[in-house]
């Protein structure tokens, strides 16, 4: 009996030692020690990834998924400064490229897992009486955008550049003159509109879906900007296999269905 349990123990040590080299999908049994998967994800992914994480945990009872949601730039800097992460999901390719350059991520392992569009959001009351994109240039209304430093803020300004072609060359300047605050992340833009403190904001479609009480104005594709979100495992990850399994789940039909439910589009 004693010999048998020693054998089991040896076998367990052997299997754990081998697991990093194997490429088979995770089938987490109760015998495995509890593990934590740390996912750094763009703030706009908060709702969708929380749901995906819960499902992943349910399928792998010994795994705890921990998220760090913040602006993609902040996450990138944290990783560069040595924050321990297993997976990075960014709202823009720029940050992922920087991590590839710094050898934190390999170029081959990074893949686009979703698209996200911009949309204009208004408070439920819409007291400023905005009913078209052109109204954003009306003098005196209060607009909040994400800061130029975060991806959605950069995309918003790119979209305004495109709108100059449709609504006149000074459209962007007029809209920017109405900006009362450049928020540090997209969720803050939503919050300011929800509280009715500003008259309009530009956010991702997914953020509008997460705040169904807000009024939305679609931005036509020709003047919109499509954000492509890349995901990749970190080279330094201590849970390479788990990281792969998580990414595979995000890319699976089930994962993509959850993302679509939260307003994202499949790539």
């Amino acid at each position: 009996m004693k010999r048998f349990s020693t054998l089991i123990l040896l076998l367990a040590i052997f299997l754990t030692g081998c697991s990093s080299a194997s490429s088979t999908p995770i089938i987490d049994s109760a015998n495995q020690p509890p593990r934590t998967l740390t996912v750094f994800a763009a703030a706009s992914l908060t709702d969708a990834f929380t749901e995906i994480g819960n499902n992943f945990q349910a399928a792998n009872p010994n795994v705890t998924v921990t998220f760090n949601f913040a602006g993609s730039q902040a996450l990138r800097t944290q990783i560069e400064e040595g924050a321990p992460a297993d997976v990075f999901a960014s709202a823009s390719g720029k940050e992922m490229e920087a991590l590839v350059t710094g050898s934190f991520v390999t170029a081959e392992s990074s893949q686009i897992f979703l698209n996200n569009k911009l949309v204009v959001i208004l408070p439920t009351a819409n007291s400023a009486g905005i009913d078209s994109i052109e109204d954003l240039a009306t003098a005196g209304i209060k607009i909040v955008l994400a800061a130029e430093e975060v991806p959605v803020g950069r995309y918003s300004r790119e979209a305004l550049d495109k709108m100059n072609g449709s609504f006149g060359t000074d459209f962007k300047d007029k809209v920017l003159a109405n900006v009362v605050s450049n928020e540090d992340n997209v969720k803050q833009v939503v919050a300011k509109i929800q509280l009715g403190e500003a008259d309009a904001g530009i956010v991702y479609t997914s953020d509008a879906v997460a705040a169904p009480e807000l009024v939305t104005i679609e931005i036509p594709t020709d003047i919109n900007v499509i954000a492509k979100y890349p995901i990749a495992p970190l080279v330094e990850s201590a849970n390479a296999e788990l990281a792969q399994a998580f990414i595979a789940y995000v890319l699976s039909d089930e994962g993509q269905a959850i993302l679509q439910k939260w307003g994202f589009a499949s790539p």
């Binding site: 730039q73 800097t77 800061a147 900006v179 605050s181 450049n182 540090d184």
Partner: peptide, 26 residues
């Protein structure tokens, strides 16, 4: 940042510029 927001020259104070600077370039 919650009450006054962030606009250069109007409400963007040093700590705010530092935080957003971190998002752009450390």
């Amino acid at each position: 940042i919650l009450f006054a927001g962030n606009l250069e020259g109007v409400t963007q104070t040093m700590p705010m510029a530092i935080y957003l600077g971190f998002e752009r370039n450390s």
